[in-house]
Nucleic acid binder design. Structure first.
Length: 306
DNA sequence: GGCATTTGACCCTA
DNA sequence: TAGGGTCAAATGCC
């Protein structure tokens, strides 16, 4: 089969799967607040579609005799201990070792993880502070450096660097270095809010689509959840309990987003008084959401890197 | 005023 | 020595 055809089929199938997954997620949240569970049957159908997409994609891959033309990433995570790193950008005159981001040539020795996404990573739920930006040799866009905001008060050594590696559709590569050793107050706060929502179901999770053309590859980017009045007070109390104004727990990574100016459509939600990070505002289905996001989201994100 | 971001300079390593 | 990573003063925003 011709490589371009295979590629197109793969993208089509994966796109379908991704759209279905997003729809499923919306349904699950809807079901969460809908005691009648009307959408359960449709959810089952969606799951079948997703599985079908996966099966077809795998079938296409398996039926191809060589993998040299597809450039499908085989490794999702790369480490600095000698395991393979993916070519990070369109460098042409550099050696392979120089293409290994954060490795070999530089001082980094901490464990490194690389993720490529169509957005600048908005759901890791850690507060990051930008401490540098630099144009990298042969890179089209500057690389931004972030450290955990708890670096000094808790000694957290986690850092990440974000680089835009493609314009259309926007593609970012985020390299996480080191583990968070800080106490993640997001997790604590989520428990408080979970209890609240479990009792009164006053939450609205809005996943309305924006303009389709605003999103790369027709991705459905959910709008941020809005907390209604009943939870407002508890969130305010939560915010007041934070000891320092330097702890910007509300949508920390949107700052990252905005630093790239690519997702200004989120600004309205970002400015909303009661908007918090989706991972923070964890309703009863939040664990499932995280799993979906981590498992399916990362899979599809990686698959789109042809 | 306090905080985050920007940016030039410096540090460190291959 | 080149170049990526980090620091810290300057600047801007709220």
């Amino acid at each position: 089969m011709e490589s371009s055809t295979v590629r197109k089929r793969l993208i089509d199938e994966l796109t379908r799967g991704r759209e279905s997954t997003n729809m499923l997620r919306v349904m699950l949240y809807k079901t969460q607040n809908d005691r009648e569970c009307k959408s359960l049957l449709s959810s089952k159908n969606l799951i079948e579609k997703i599985l079908d997409s996966f099966d077809k994609s795998l079938s296409i891959l398996n039926s191809s005799k060589s993998n040299e033309v597809y450039d499908v990433p085989e490794v999702k995570l790369w480490h600095c201990d000698g395991r393979k790193l993916k070519d990070f950008s369109k460098r042409t005159n550099t050696s392979e070792s120089e293409n290994q981001i954060g490795c070999n040539k530089r001082r980094k020795s901490l464990e490194t993880q690389i993720r490529e996404t169509h957005f600048a990573s908005i759901q890791d739920c850690h507060a990051w502070r930008k401490y540098g930006q630099k144009f990298i040799l042969n890179a089209q866009h500057p690389r931004s450096y972030f450290r955990c905001t708890n670096k000094y008060d808790q000694g957290c050594q986690a850092t990440k660097l974000v680089q835009k590696i493609q314009d259309d559709p926007p593609l970012f590569s985020t390299t996480y270095q080191g583990q968070h050793t800080c106490k993640n107050l997001f997790e604590e706060s989520s428990h408080i809010i979970m209890d609240t929502t479990a009792n009164n179901s006053s939450t609205i999770w809005s996943f309305d689509s924006h303009e389709p053309n605003d999103k790369p590859n027709g991705m459905v980017i959910p709008t941020l959840p809005i907390i209604q009045q009943e939870t407002k007070e508890k969130v305010q109390n939560l915010q007041e309990s934070f000891s320092s104004p330097s702890n910007y727990f509300l949508l920390p990574d949107l700052m990252t987003l905005e630093s790239f100016g690519e997702f200004s459509f989120l600004s309205s939600a970002y400015d909303h008084e009661h908007v918090i990070c989706p991972d923070v505002y964890s309703g009863p289905g939040s664990a499932l959401d995280m799993e979906i996001e981590m498992m399916l989201g990362s899979v599809f994100n990686d698959c789109f890197q042809f």
